[in-house]
């Protein structure tokens, strides 16, 4: 039991994606303009990660080593399409906001990385814990970055005004270069705590 708890908590700080591995940066730069988009993306990725981890660890003894990546991708892609269809059907506004970055979860290194590094070598329960922890860690990272960018860049949090109507937004933060600067600052702060 202790080991399962350990698999879950490692994703929350020690190996928190994407900051620790600096993997899967494409969505983190693009969808962190606003907090609601970031949380939506985090939930979508967590769902895909947990589901693909479950299936891959279930079938880990059946999948031949030579074609494992192909099989992983099929499983991951299937769940991504599930997310895409569900989002279109139930939360269309969010789907419009995230756009191309939902289908791009298929090639997110975090998902494939967990499948290859963890789920294909461990049984189902630890794999669920691993997927859930990594997914929640990813959501937290995205939310933190998006909060910073949205509050400074637009003066709002989850669409609500923070500083009142007189605030002049620092729009640089919500543009693409701002994403790189914020990410760099985040990484620097995290490294500071590590030492």
């Amino acid at each position: 039991m202790a080991s399962i708890a350990r698999e879950f908590t490692k994703g929350l700080w020690d190996e928190i994606p994407p900051f620790r591995f600096v993997l899967g940066l494409c969505p983190i730069l693009a969808v962190t303009k606003s907090v609601d988009g970031a949380v939506g993306m985090g939930i979508a990725l967590t769902f895909v990660l947990v589901c693909s981890n479950i299936l891959i660890s279930l079938f880990r003894k059946v999948i031949p080593k030579d074609v494992r990546i192909a099989c992983f991708i099929v499983v991951i892609a299937a769940f991504v399409i599930v997310v895409e269809l569900m989002m279109q059907a139930y939360t269309y506004a969010l789907f419009e906001k995230l756009g191309i970055f939902i289908p791009l979860i298929v090639v997110n290194c975090i998902v494939l990385g967990r499948a290859e590094a963890f789920a294909s070598k461990n049984s189902v329960l630890p794999s669920i814990a691993d997927g859930l922890g990594m997914g929640i860690g990813f959501t937290m990272s995205l939310t933190a970055l998006a909060s910073l960018r949205e509050i400074l860049g637009a003066g709002t949090f989850w669409g609500m005004s923070v500083f009142g109507p007189n605030y002049k937004p620092f729009t640089f933060m919500v543009e693409a270069p701002g994403a790189f600067v914020c990410l760099g600052l985040m990484l620097a702060i995290m490294n500071l705590f590590k030492k």
Partner: peptide
């Protein structure tokens, strides 16, 4: 090898087409 990949793809494709049909109207 071939059979495994084909089986995975076929099952995934089949299930997805069902889901697509279900959500299409919505």
């Amino acid at each position: 090898l071939l059979f495994t990949v084909m089986a995975f793809s076929a099952v995934a494709g089949g299930l997805l087409s069902v889901l697509e049909a279900v959500t299409k109207e919505r």
